[in-house]
Write a protein that binds this DNA or RNA. Sequence first.
DNA 1: GCTTTTTTGCAAATAATTTGCATATTTTTC
DNA 2: GAAAAATATGCAAATTATTTGCAAAAAAGC
Lengths: 145, 145
Amino acid sequence: MKIIKALSLLKEKGLSNTGSRKRILEALMFSSGPLSAHEIYQRLLKEGVNCNESTVYRNLQKFLEKDLVQSFTLNDGVSRFEFKKSSDDHHHHIVCLKCKMMKCLDLCKVEDYFEEMIKKLGFVSVSHNLEFYGVCKSCTNSGLK
Amino acid sequence: MKIIKALSLLKEKGLSNTGSRKRILEALMFSSGPLSAHEIYQRLLKEGVNCNESTVYRNLQKFLEKDLVQSFTLNDGVSRFEFKKSSDDHHHHIVCLKCKMMKCLDLCKVEDYFEEMIKKLGFVSVSHNLEFYGVCKSCTNSGLK
DNA sequence: GCTTTTTTGCAAATAATTTGCATATTTTTC
DNA sequence: GAAAAATATGCAAATTATTTGCAAAAAAGC
Ligand SMILES: [Mn+2]
Ligand SMILES: [Mn+2]
Ligand SMILES: [Zn+2]
Ligand SMILES: [Zn+2]
């Protein structure tokens, strides 16, 4: 198992190497789950990295263009970003409506089931966004909020 | 086939009958597809109905609570609302990335496929949000934008 | 009709994201 | 390695969707 470093990824994608950019990418690479722009910004702050929030947004855009990350928007209106371990890494999440905890769901055959329907409508280059919402085990038990 | 009127729906749900409220609900009932708060507001304006945009938002909230409408958020960050023809009306949409045209997709067995996975994680009261994005037939042909 | 409850309009607040522009940093060129 | 060219950053302001406080208006209950 090869460990890919942020720096070589940036080079590979033709992105210039700046301190902020590398730190933003690393935050995503080492995160255990999706992060919002603001969450990334706050992590950098905590680490003492001087980085503007606009810079976070601009870099996330770049990462999306270069297919380094995937993004999705939850029903709270906030976009989350997640490092793509491989170019065909495609999966979804389930979010706890109470504590906001999020779990990744492996595998996704969603398009297979809608494929025919969509084909009939004549759409091409189809992608999708799917999120599940529910109440997680610990919130169910604790009777939180 | 019974025609249900906005007014009787409001009464049924215990919502007071105001001009704006009735018009907002009707806009949704008679629309051929999902509408954003702003789109509803603009339709009312065009019809010469005096109604504030905050009022639209507040009524949409009420309709959601009373299960008269369903809502979902597209990746443009805007929520759309759609009248529920029945309480178990559950379906999704595909949106053209170029012209924003939207089609309803009937049937949804998404939860069946993720059910086991989600059950294992211990989540309950699970719902989901699913949108497809693609390029529609006429945009593919016209080579728009 | 009078009282109570709910809704509305309006203006201001909130919050996520984007943008213009001057400055700073990185990359490329020589 | 220094200068020129390309790119990225910080900062403040703009944008946009949505929410909120509050006083006035309308609807519901009696
Ligand atoms: Mn994930
Ligand atoms: Mn629909
Ligand atoms: Zn999927
Ligand atoms: Zn579904």
